[in-house]
């Protein structure tokens, strides 16, 4: 049975379809990665249109609270095995939006990230490097982020709810303002 798993993992590593969630400026690095200069299709990686078809969720750049909600929904619509690549410093620690009121700091608090690509912006070489690294991890059976998500679902859910389902103000009110609504 383990041989079978190894075979399956080998082919999974050779054929990874990618859904790119492009909210930030990082999207601009993807066209050269896909097209003739760097050509990621030679690793079997192809952009896909919907989460149902995809294996990799590539998150290029910062996530506002509003977009985080969509990313989580998209991630949950993907089917296992699935992997998340955090692209750029924004997904690591907020990047230049580190003190913004509306941009999350660390992506792997909300969904499991298999590989982070550091840089602002990471170059296409870095992206390809991460793909190759992910391929090795998948073939060695190391990239198990999706299993971690299922196992620690309460922890992730609590983190998500803390951001998405606020019921009281985060800070003390400094002055009374007109009520919104």
């Amino acid at each position: 049975m383990s041989e079978w798993t190894e075979i399956v993992d080998y082919f999974r590593g050779r054929s990874m379809w990618m859904l790119h969630y492009c909210t930030g400026c990082g999207a601009i690095e993807l066209p050269p990665t896909m097209t003739s200069r760097w050509d990621m299709e030679r690793f079997g990686i192809t952009p896909m249109a919907t989460p149902r078809q995809a294996d990799i969720l590539l998150i290029t750049g910062y996530l506002a609270i509003k977009t985080l909600k969509r990313v989580i929904y998209t991630y949950e619509q993907m089917q296992p095995p699935k992997w998340v690549l955090g692209f750029g410093s924004c997904t690591i620690n907020g990047g230049i939006y580190w003190d913004s009121y509306n941009v999350i700091e660390r992506l792997d608090k909300y969904i499991p990230v298999d590989i982070y690509i550091a840089g602002c912006m990471p170059r296409p070489e870095a992206i390809l490097d991460s793909f190759v690294k992910l391929k090795e991890m998948v073939q060695n059976g190391e990239a198990k982020g999706y299993e971690k998500y299922v196992k620690n679902y309460e922890w992730y859910k609590a983190n998500q709810d803390k951001v998405l389902k606020r019921t009281k103000p985060v800070l003390e009110r400094i002055e009374k303002v007109t009520k919104i609504g």
């Binding site: 580190w98 913004s100 700091e105 951001v163 800070l171 002055e175």
Partner: peptide
Amino acid sequence: DFDTLAFSEELFEF
């Protein structure tokens, strides 16, 4: 008077 850093530290636990 809204402290975005404090908000960020509090909510995102940075």
